[in-house]
Design a protein around this nucleic acid. Sequence first.
RNA 1: GGCCUCGUGGCGGAGUGGUGACGCAGAGGACUGCAAAUCCUUGCACCCGAGUUCGAUUCUCGGCGAGGCCUCCA
Length: 461
Amino acid sequence: MSVTLKLYNTLNREKTAFQPIDADNVRMYVCGPTVYDFAHIGNARPAIVFDVLFRLLRHVYGDSHVTYARNITDVDDKINARALRDFPHLPLNDAIHAVTEKTAKQFHADVAALGCLEPTVEPRATDNIEQMVAIIEKLIGNGHAYVAEGEVLFDTRSMTDYGQLSKRPLDEQQAGIRIAVDAHKKNPGDFVLWKLSSDNEPGWESPWGRGRPGWHIECSAMSNRYLGEVFDIHGGGLDLIFPHHENEIAQSRCAHGTEVMANVWMHNGFVQVEGRKMSKSDGNFVTVNQLLATQDFGGRQWPGEILRLAMLMTHYREPIDFSIKRLEEAERLLAKWPAADASDTAPCPIIIDALADDLNTVAAVQRLHALAQEANADATLLPMFAASATLLGVLPEKTEVDEALAGAVDALVAMRLEMLKAKNFAEADRIRDELSAKGIQLKDGKDAATGERMTTWEVKR
RNA sequence: GGCCUCGUGGCGGAGUGGUGACGCAGAGGACUGCAAAUCCUUGCACCCGAGUUCGAUUCUCGGCGAGGCCUCCA
């Protein structure tokens, strides 16, 4: 294991060498989507960022020695609201199912288009209710949770070092400053583990009656089930640090009696629009699907590889201002990169080092671009380029050209050269335009030895 | 109010106590019948102030500015 990974850890705000608990099974958990609506491009950032990390971990520790869990939250009051709005004629459970299935499917399509590998496991909240109930029972049993007015609440005062991740000690918080504190809470910071459901809300039987889980308990239950009580890396967006991750930590550590929940906590920065956070509630968002499939942004569609590269051109902890200009730059870069077959050659060491340094995709992309230029001039570098691009998930796909088409194009190219010799420029340009319209780009060069015009062509991407 | 980021050319962004990479765009040129591609050349920047120092963009402090969390949020 010659590569030393360094990762910035939100727990101590330091970049430190990564030491897996078990190098044979490196475990990473990333908070996935709540499936009630289309994912916007900001939601896509963690998917891409941690996909790169997943690829890097697989490279370093071996494909079969990394477990990446990304959940799907399919229990949430927003989902209920959406179900009632969009499928009022269906029974509630069917309506909810319709919403979550449709949204999850869309999410998978979006993320696939962005070049993300599938996580090792993708648990759903609804499949893990039992596990949540078990953890809640444990928390009640060991005095970290209490029942009040039909809710089960986590007792934040019962955990002496609550607030470590967000550096937000309990007594310094101004809980209730912006929302009224519920009277039944022992402490303002206490949060819901389980709440009762009315007849028109989804619910599961539990020791506390028919109800549904609070938001934070889902991730504690699922990460525990698939990765164990303590695992290596937990990721998500910056805005999840508080309260979501803080509360996950509280639940998991108090339930299992562990010192930490995950060793390394990683958080990606926001995607911004005109300097402001893109968010659903502010309404200033562009969905991945809009970018991929509509002309809503910049009057055109944007292939997933462009979106992905645009994302990787900024370090994951920095904010990104999402703009047409940056997408166009990503497109220009990609256009200059050779298409190549995937290769099992070793990736460029400079790129591995860059990624190993807290996922420095900026440096990695710059080096990849240089490597692409080198490979354009020297085909023996193509396999290394391909392997490196694959590590970043940005390998341009080789467009298959069938022989009939290739033959036809070659014939037209030859004909054009004849027209040129005859100084019939109008006809030569017509052929060039005709091919261009079909997506064939001609490139005129000079034969180094003879000085004769040589024309090559490629399929435009 | 508390806590946390960040501030380098048009844009994306390196970097260092001793006058600042690189990429994209721009400009000029070569090539070309023209264009594209390619190649060469090139202009433009370290938020402000004080301090430390022989010397700071880089260190310290203070401003100013931007953003985020403290409520659902990637």
